[in-house]
Design a protein around this nucleic acid. Structure first.
Lengths: 315, 315
DNA sequence: CCTTGACTTGAAATCCATTTCATCCATTAG
DNA sequence: CTAATGGATGAAATGGATTTCAAGTCAAGG
């Protein structure tokens, strides 16, 4: 590969001058500038990014840790991040963790090795205590609320959204409300459990099914819910694909939505739109956009994004 | 930041020895190895990735050019790529182009600047003649068939799939078949036009609507199709979200699917599953996986992935 | 005519790790 | 006892840029 000193030789100048041309310095005689430009053209030269990164100590590349690469909710976050990254001339590297602690750490290590200028954590397996030390090596931004932590975040008030959605169901007369969640240990799951207890008191046995992600999971969950002695009259799903699965199962059993069964989904995803599923939109795209803004500002701010409830025909 | 020579000094050895320890060379006295390891631990040292990349000339990072970062089809491709990348200890950087020619070129330029070890093009705006010269600087793999080109690809036979799907509609008695596509200039659009002509002859005016991506686009397209004098009895949609939109519009007009209107979608996406939409699955995930395999093999092979038609209740 | 400041330019230091080469020591085989 | 071999180690070159520093030219101002 041709490098900067090849250019210098061919153009009859020093590497410093070539570098000046490359970086648009003023104070380069125009004849030399043109000579350099001509040689660059002739030899089809492009500066080596590694060398530049090494000396500059930055990459304009942000890593995004996300548990699954085929989950609509995380795609929404990612989309927001990508949009802002494009606007700001940054690149985004996706770091799928599958919630493996070691993998997550391996990715954070890459911040330390200067491979990324910053990292956005959309969801995590490790404790914050484990993660925080890595923020010495670059900004780490969370998409989950991080009170009392030296970590910036872009989040929505899930607890409040859950309370509001559950209140909505309650106000429509529902007393037997079941719900699905993703991982038991996730922040979001913790929040909805608290919100549920706040609104309806104890969770009846069988009214909470965790580890739901796909339409199929929703279908299976609905089957279980509707076999219960005390059949729920409403279900809060942790995503519109899961909600869609519940909807499809209900239809297959001639159960009328919303009359016999109300369903409310989450995140306003394509899978729900066609079905007319009501949904709690946590504005994941906006959360992603803000997360990106924070990471390049190396900010430790905590930015709250408003959620909104989209009513369609399933409640 | 502490670097390799700091480690060397503190451990009382040369940088070569530290490097040997770092890279697990044999032939390092065990006392020195331990001393080095101890100092690394103490000073919390991590090698600088830029320096390593510079000297090694590779990054284990693959760039993936995709037009939209919020399009389910491209997400499916990306998922396949990410899965294989994780398995092989590679990182994936997503490069959204919005089909801007200059952006696409800017990304290819990054291959030349050694920022990526290879690039996967899921879809493109530029001509191949413009793209091919960049393959001098690293492997470029296409997710579209590239006959006669020095570019490896992982693809499915879209022409055949379109013919088969249209034949299926024909065999069910449909003679008035409309269809939606994405960009007019895309390879896929070219193929379906040819396939349509093969199966049904000339395309009746108004029977082809392009630039469809979302459920909303499908909804709007359906409205137009169903206002035509010669109303189509079947619609082939270029994706299940578009198909879902068509479905929803049909329902809203009390048009029965599939009796009054058959709908067939594409790519077997979540949006279609709940609706029971029949679909042509081009196995985008598998195409992505193969594309990754090819890129790290620096292969120019052309790998064909079989498609399959998934019949549900909309045809 | 001298000083000052605006331009121009190149040598060399710097960023940080890998790798080649040369050297040295200690065995072991012949 | 010598030659060959296997281990162990460091100096220096290498990868490819940026940037500081010093020095030189030239024209304008006093």
């Amino acid at each position: 590969m041709t490098n900067i000193s090849d250019i210098a030789k061919h153009a009859g100048v020093s590497v410093s001058t070539v570098s000046r041309v490359l970086n648009n310095y003023k104070y380069v005689a125009s004849d030399k500038r043109e000579a350099v430009l001509r040689v660059i053209e002739e030899l089809n030269y492009t500066p080596n990014k590694h060398a530049i990164d090494l000396i500059r100590g930055e990459t304009r590349n942000i890593g995004v840790i996300l548990p699954y690469n085929n989950n609509t909710a995380f795609d929404q976050l990612l989309n927001g991040i990508l949009t802002k990254a494009s606007e700001n001339d940054y690149l985004i590297t996706v770091l799928p963790s599958q919630y493996h602690k070691e993998r997550e750490i391996a990715y954070l290590q890459k911040l330390k090795s200067r491979q990324f200028d910053g990292i956005i954590i959309t969801s995590r397996a490790n404790d914050w205590e484990t993660i925080i030390p890595y923020s010495d090596f670059g900004p780490i931004i969370s998409c989950e609320y991080t009170p009392h932590l030296e970590i910036g975040c872009s989040y929505t008030d899930r607890y409040a959204s859950f309370v509001e959605a559950l209140q909505l169901l309650k106000s429509r007369g529902h007393r037997a409300v079941a719900f699905t969640t993703a991982r038991l240990t996730s922040n979001s799951t913790q929040q909805i459990i608290l919100a549920y207890q706040e609104v309806f008191g104890e969770i009846p046995s069988g009214y909470h099914i965790s580890d739901c992600q796909s339409l199929e999971d929703g279908y299976a969950a609905a089957k279980l819910f509707l076999q219960l002695q005390e059949r729920p009259t409403a279900i809060y799903a942790n995503g519109d694909e899961v909600g869609g699965g519940i909807y499809v199962y209900a239809k297959s059993q001639q159960i009328k939505v919303p009359d016999d069964l109300a369903i409310i989904g989450q995140e306003n995803q394509p899978a729900g739109i066609g079905l007319g599923l009501s949904t709690v939109d946590h504005q994941l795209t906006k959360i992603g956009e803000q997360a990106f803004n924070l990471v390049i500002k190396k900010s430790k701010e905590k930015v709250k994004i408003p959620y909104c409830i989209v009513e369609r025909n399933s409640v």
